[in-house]
Write a protein that binds this DNA or RNA. Sequence first.
DNA 1: ACCTGGTCCAACCATTTGGTTGGAACATCT
DNA 2: AGATGTTCCAACCAAATGGTTGGACCAGGT
Lengths: 219, 219
Amino acid sequence: MALHDAHPAVTDLAPPDDIDEAEVNILDAAHRVFLRQGTDGARMQEIANEASVNKSMLHYYFRSKERLAEAVFMRAVRETFRRFEPAMQPDVPFRDFVRDLIVADLAMMDDHPYLVGYIISELHHHPERWRQTIALEFPDGRTAMQAKLDAAIATGEIRPITLLEFTTFLVSMTFFPTVGGGLVRAYAGATKEEWDAFLDRREAHFMNLCLNGLRPTKA
Amino acid sequence: MALHDAHPAVTDLAPPDDIDEAEVNILDAAHRVFLRQGTDGARMQEIANEASVNKSMLHYYFRSKERLAEAVFMRAVRETFRRFEPAMQPDVPFRDFVRDLIVADLAMMDDHPYLVGYIISELHHHPERWRQTIALEFPDGRTAMQAKLDAAIATGEIRPITLLEFTTFLVSMTFFPTVGGGLVRAYAGATKEEWDAFLDRREAHFMNLCLNGLRPTKA
DNA sequence: ACCTGGTCCAACCATTTGGTTGGAACATCT
DNA sequence: AGATGTTCCAACCAAATGGTTGGACCAGGT
C-alpha cells in the first residue's frame, strides 16, 4: 500500500527541502525524550505526548521505535559535527584553529549538555551506527584534520603527534568535562562557586592545556 | 515477616565479612547484564539466566529491579575508586603520582572498558546516587588530592591550578579515550594498526601531555 | 523425630509496551 | 459532486515484563 511506501529508508538522508512539519515535530519530541530517558527508558506514549500527537503517528512516520531512535541518533550526530566544520578552513593559524574547536565544543556543551552522554551511551549498544553516520556525513574529516596537523608540525608550532593522539586529546579536553562534569565535581567536592568559576575559565584553561601539552619539547 | 526484614537497606553498605555467595553471584550477573544492556535495557529474566538462578531469587535478595540496579551501581563506583587510593599516598614525587594515576586508570579501562560509559549513563538519570556514593566512600578524597596538588605547586613542578581544573584534566585525559575511543577512532578513520599503536603508547603519551600541559609557563 | 528459619523455585498475575487496525476528516484533482 | 490519496486517531491486541505466591527442600537446634 502507498501508505508505507512513503516511509523513507532510514539510511536515506532527506534533503532539507522535503521537510515535513509533523515529522520534524515528532523527531524533535523524540529527541527530547530519548535524551532524557535514554533509548530503552523512553516510552512511545511519552514521545507522543511530548509531540502532542497520537501514538500511532509515531508509527505512521517512523514505523517502529527502533527506526525512530535511529533517526534521532543520526540527526543528533550530524548536527553535532556540523559545528566543527567552520573550524576546518585551511590557512587559519593553528592557535586560532584550536580556539575555534574549543569554542564550538563548549558552545555545544552549553546548548545540549546531555548530547555527548547520549551519543556515548548509544554508541555502546550500536557501534555500527556511528561509523555509518560519520562515514556518510564526514567522509573527508580525516584528511582535513590531518592537513591542519601537518602544517602545525611543519612550522614547529607543535611537536610531532599522530592524528589519533591529537584528535583524542582535543575531544577529551572539551567533551569530557561536561559529560563527566558532575562526576568530577562531586569527587572534588566543589562548591557551586568553584564550579561556576571553573566554567568561566574553561576556554582559557583548555587553550592553555592544549597549547602547552602539545608544544615541542625544547632540545 | 522475617523474610523481608532480612533485606538490608540499600544505603546500608554491607561489611565485607557477611558476604553471601548467592547474593554476590546475582550481583555479578546483574553487573554484567546491566553493563552491556544498560539499566533500562536489562531484563530481570536475563539476569536470572546469567546467574543460573530462578528469577524470584533476584527479588528475594534485592527486592526490586531498582534496588538491584542501585546495588550494582554502588559497588561499581566503589571498586572503580578503590583503584586510585594507592596513588594517594603522601611523599611520592608528583611525577610518580601522576604516573600511578594514569596507570591505574588505564588498567581499569582495560579490565572494564564499559564501566565508565555505564557510570556516566547512570549518572545522567540518577545524579543523586553518585554524590551519595562518593560522599560515603571517599569523604576525604578532596583533601588528599588537594595536598598533592599544593605540594607540587609549592615546589614549582606545576603552575598554579585549581583542584577542579586539575582533577578534570586528569580524568578527561584518561577516562575519555576509552569511553569515547570508538567515537574518535571512527572520526579519525583510524585503522586497526593505528589504533593498536595508540593504545600501546597511551601511558607515555598521557604522561607527556599531562606534565607538559601543567608545567609552569616560563617568565 | 519434629520444629524453625533460611533458601530456592514453578506457576501465576496485573500492568505496561510496542505495534496494528479500520475508519474519520481533510485536501486535491477531475 | 465524486473519486483519490494523505493525515490523523480511538480502540484494540499479543507479547513481554516486573513482581507475587505458596510451598518444597534442607540444615541446625531441641
